[in-house]
Amino acid sequence: MLSVSIQKQLKNYSLEIHFNVNEEIIALFGPSGAGKTTILNCIAGLAHPDQGLIQLENRTFYETKKKPVPIQKRNIGYLFQDYALFPHMTVQKNISYGMKDAHLTEQLIDTVAIRHLLDRYPNQISGGEKQRVALVRALATKPDALLLDEPFSALDQDTRVECQNELLRLHELWKIPMILVTHDLKEANKLADRILKIDKGKSL
């Protein structure tokens, strides 16, 4: 279980949020600037709250007044909105960068059908393909939880539905806590077991 209970002063409001995620998909739903990405960044370790507690299973990532666990040691997968693929590496190199289990990665590559892309560079593949590559890259590190920041927002309708179905399928196989940030209620309803509505840093 991932449990998050944090407080952080942002520019215009104070972010205050408490929630637990079991082996399920939770959607953080709210308008732009509601603090959704900040929550993900705090969980991943890219940002730190002012106070609170972040725990995954029996590991404590952040606790008030203690030194936070660095990003590298958290083992949390993060799918960025713009995918953040390494532009100077082929798809193959991107995927194997943090890979922990080669056999599993091979399976993932076939599951999302990107084997034909392995030798291409990120600028040579489409948005939907980038999304799949980023997903495989994140899962290849065998993360204990997965964060997804509006992963489908840049895709056209058909590709979006396809990728959403793929995520559901992978979650069936993986059963880890997943947190999905979205401002699309339909998407939240379709993918999430629970929806956490957020506005101005507070859950509604």
Binding site: Q72, G98, T141
Partner: peptide, 9 residues
């Protein structure tokens, strides 16, 4: 891009 690499350990 750097942050992604950090999250991969």
């Amino acid at each position: 891009v750097e942050n992604a690499a950090y999250t991969m350990g």
